[in-house]
Design a protein around this nucleic acid. Structure first.
Lengths: 197, 197
DNA sequence: CCTACCGATCGGTAGG
DNA sequence: CCTACCGATCGGTAGG
């Protein structure tokens, strides 16, 4: 009564906010416990919903995982392209990419790291979509690495970027912030390992 | 009647064979589908048992995973120590270790690779046991790497072995036998990447 | 987004 | 190692 029916026609930001909240929370739980071990009920409870409600925003649990991954890759790609656009020598570019990548996968506020280990949980179609996004991300790296491989600063030839990804992505397995090394310090050590003098 | 009661007192090899068969089959399925996505029924069916029977050999699904991992690490450790005992220069030893490690994690007949990605599925106690076995394995590597790091043939200082493991273990993510490279060829490329001239 | 619920599946067990 | 079964849980849905 007090409020006239001037309420917005299309549900505004709020709807997107809840969706974004689900993605963020699901990402965190998937990372902490794994996709299979995380239930829709866990996710719903963590955002203050009832168990059936996430399905109002996502048609399946799979779909939620796909959204988490693509969201993560989009954020990553934007960041990487910004770095790549800064210019500088191949070595400087490489250093910057390593630092940016590690901040991305090691930051606990980020859920990028589930991209590394939950491929198997995606359906065939979702996987194709996510792989396409991943390929765009890797392309930035391949281009950046090429001159360094050619100069002999990085070994491994055509496989160099795969070995580089391995050395970097594996860090999520052993890095702990309390260990005394900052992310940037680890990045420095990684560059020292990867790049020949 | 025809056969006198000279049947063996303790159930012989057969019992161990069934157990070993369960470990081998469970390992393959865990690797293919992941621990959570593999059911006891899958495993039982694959070895020709009924769904309840694996629990005659293992008291829980967890226990079966632990057995798969420890079995895998034991096999690996024996192989690695044999390599380490062969002697030779630090560089030769390193090459040999890389080849042996990759044969271990890339051979589809082996289930060593699930060690890399199913830590989360272990209970606290099982994990401690498996980590102890893993530490023994890594020790071989740390010793072998030390002189090379000191000579500047490998970068990364104290973290060198972690970066090396990363570059090597990541290979399971992208290697396909049909890709035209043999395991030993990939190993050669890996050494080229890791070891400075 | 909630209520109320389903169908299916799953790890595990008793009792032989 | 099988038969027969349980208790719990889970993804998902109808209907509002």
């Amino acid at each position: 009564m007090a409020r006239p029916s001037r309420a917005p026609v299309a549900p505004p930001a709020e709807e997107g906010n809840r969706r974004a909240e689900l993605i963020r929370t699901a990402g965190r739980l998937f990372r902490e416990k794994g996709f299979d071990a995380t239930t829709i009920r866990d996710i719903a409870a963590a955002v203050g919903m009832r168990s059936g409600s996430p399905f109002y925003h996502f048609k399946s649990k799979q779909d939620l995982l796909k959204a988490v991954m693509i969201e993560g890759l989009d954020v990553a790609l934007v960041g990487m392209r910004a770095v790549a656009g800064r210019g500088g020598s191949p070595e400087e570019l490489f250093r910057d990419l390593v630092h940016a990548h590690l901040r991305l996968i090691l930051d606990p506020a980020n859920d990028f790291s589930i991209l590394l280990y939950e491929w198997r949980s995606l359906t065939e179609e979702s996987r194709a979509e996510v792989i396409a996004a991943k390929d765009r991300y890797e392309e930035v790296w391949r281009v950046a690495l090429e001159p360094l491989v050619e100069q002999g600063r990085i070994g491994g030839g055509r496989l160099a970027h795969l070995f580089v990804f391995g050395a970097l992505n594996w860090i999520v397995q052993w890095y702990h912030p309390e260990g005394g090394l900052s992310i940037d310090q680890v990045a420095g050590k990684a560059v020292d390992f990867l790049l020949r003098p």
